Simulated scan of single mutants.
Amino acid sequence: MSIDRETPVNCPARVTLDAAQLAFFDALPAEAPSVQSELGCELELGHEGSHAALGQQVDTTTWWIQWTLSASEVNPYTWCPGRGAAPAVDRDELDCALFLGHPGEHSSTTRSREASAAS
């Protein structure tokens, strides 16, 4: 099996949310499925800085779990516009499925959906 160098590979890091983080997400006014207690990093393999996984979206704010080996936290962001100039409101309108200012390459929404379907 060979790896297609054209398609970025996600970082394999995972995080388990604590009770306070799960309670925070459950309290958000969002019409979305509840957050899973274990999430995988959505950034490109070999990225710099902390790992990140989308927790929830409320209106134009996206809540991302960011973690290192020693700590994790929930942070608000807006969607990355990808190669466009203005931030998008809906993930389906994006060239990139990550947060504004993320490290590494842009992640396509198609690749993110395929990764979610495979897990």
Rank of each mutant, 00 (worst) to 15 (best):
M1E: 12
S2Q: 12
S2M: 11
I3W: 07
I3V: 14
I3T: 15
D4I: 07
D4T: 07
R5E: 15
R5I: 13
E6R: 15
E6M: 11
T7V: 15
P8Q: 05
V9K: 14
N10A: 13
N10Y: 15
C11H: 03
C11F: 04
P12L: 07
P12I: 06
P12V: 07
A13P: 00
R14E: 14
R14W: 01
V15Y: 05
T16P: 01
T16G: 02
L17E: 05
D18E: 04
D18C: 08
D18Y: 03
A19S: 11
A20D: 14
L22A: 00
A23N: 04
F24H: 10
F25A: 11
L28D: 01
A30K: 09
A30T: 10
E31F: 00
A32H: 10
A32R: 13
P33C: 01
S34W: 00
S34L: 09
V35E: 00
Q36H: 12
Q36C: 06
Q36F: 02
S37T: 05
L39I: 09
G40R: 15
G40V: 07
C41L: 07
E42G: 09
E42L: 11
L43D: 08
L43V: 04
L43C: 05
E44F: 02
L45C: 04
G46P: 03
E48L: 10
E48G: 12
G49Q: 08
H51E: 07
H51Q: 06
A52M: 10
A52K: 04
L54G: 03
V58M: 07
T60R: 15
T62R: 11
T62V: 15
T62C: 12
T62Y: 02
W63S: 01
W64S: 08
W67F: 06
T68Y: 07
T68Q: 08
S72W: 01
E73W: 13
V74G: 02
N75P: 00
N75S: 14
P76D: 13
Y77A: 10
Y77D: 08
W79A: 06
C80A: 06
P81Q: 02
P81I: 03
G82C: 01
R83W: 07
G84K: 13
A85F: 12
A86Y: 10
P87R: 10
A88P: 06
V89Q: 13
L94Y: 00
L94K: 02
D95R: 07
D95F: 04
C96Y: 04
C96D: 03
A97L: 03
L98M: 13
L100I: 11
L100N: 14
H102R: 08
H102W: 08
H102S: 05
P103E: 06
P103W: 06
P103Q: 07
G104E: 04
G104S: 04
G104P: 03
S107M: 15
S108R: 01
T109Q: 08
T109E: 03
T110G: 09
T110V: 13
R113L: 11
E114P: 00
A115C: 01
S116P: 00
S116K: 14
A117H: 08
A117T: 10
